[in-house]
Design a protein around this nucleic acid. Structure first.
Length: 216
DNA sequence: GTTGAGCGTT
């Protein structure tokens, strides 16, 4: 019983999740199993891996059945040296579901949030406070900028990946420009994304200025 | 052969 996740992840609601950071890139679940298993019964261990390379991202998730064992593992394994690197063990959380997760485990269940409790709306206060700082505009603006930047980098990266050397190719075109004309038909096939020709260069520019209605 | 803040299912 060394392979976890092969048979599918166990019940999350019945297990505590621990996040192990700063682990080696070559560290596997089998390596962490005997280490975490000593402090409690590990129900599942999962290590996210890159879809491109297939290597581990450097962190893993370990699930315990009881919080006592999980807490002990965090206190014992946190800061411990594994595979030559000092790992960081702490309780994990499921992103947006973190609200329902406490100490890596779901503490509250929200089956039907339909009931609108006007008397109980503590979250609304946070929203108001967030808006008061006017950070939403700045935050979104910056996020968009970063997103555009990442997209550009990804596109450029793929293009370069297609060619061995962009400089060489560019210089080659300068000298042997007729070479490209020699095979115009093949030039089409070399296009990685032929559909991009008909794609507008500024999609967000078309919907931004005209359709913008801040006050409704 | 490399890297190092983070939050998860092929």
């Amino acid at each position: 019983m060394s392979h976890f996740g092969r048979s599918g992840p166990p019940a999350i609601r019945d297990s505590y999740s621990l996040l192990v950071l700063n682990v080696s890139f070559r560290t596997t679940a089998d390596d962490l199993f005997p280490i975490f298993e000593r402090y409690g019964e590990v129900v599942d261990i999962y290590i996210p891996r890159d879809r491109r390379t297939g290597d581990s991202r450097g962190f893993a998730f370990v699930r315990y059945m009881f919080e006592d064992e999980a807490q002990k593992a965090v206190d014992r394994l946190d800061g411990r040296t594994v595979d030559g690197r000092d790992i960081t063990v702490q309780f994990a959380k499921y992103g947006p579901n973190a609200e329902r997760i406490h100490k890596g485990r779901i503490v509250e269940e929200i089956p039907k949030p339909r009931g609108r409790s006007r008397s109980h709306s503590p979250r609304r206060r946070y929203r108001d406070d967030y808006r008061d700082r006017d950070y939403r505009r700045r935050s979104r603006s910056r996020s968009v900028e970063r997103y555009e930047h990442e997209r550009y980098q990804e596109r450029d990266y793929r293009r370069r990946s297609h060619s061995i050397s962009p400089d060489y190719d560019r210089r080659h075109v300068r000298n042997g420009r007729s070479s490209a004309r020699r095979s115009p038909s093949h030039s089409r096939s070399y296009s990685p994304t032929p559909s991009r020709e008909g794609t507008p260069r500024r999609p967000r520019d078309d919907r931004a200025p005209r359709s913008q209605n801040p006050s409704t």
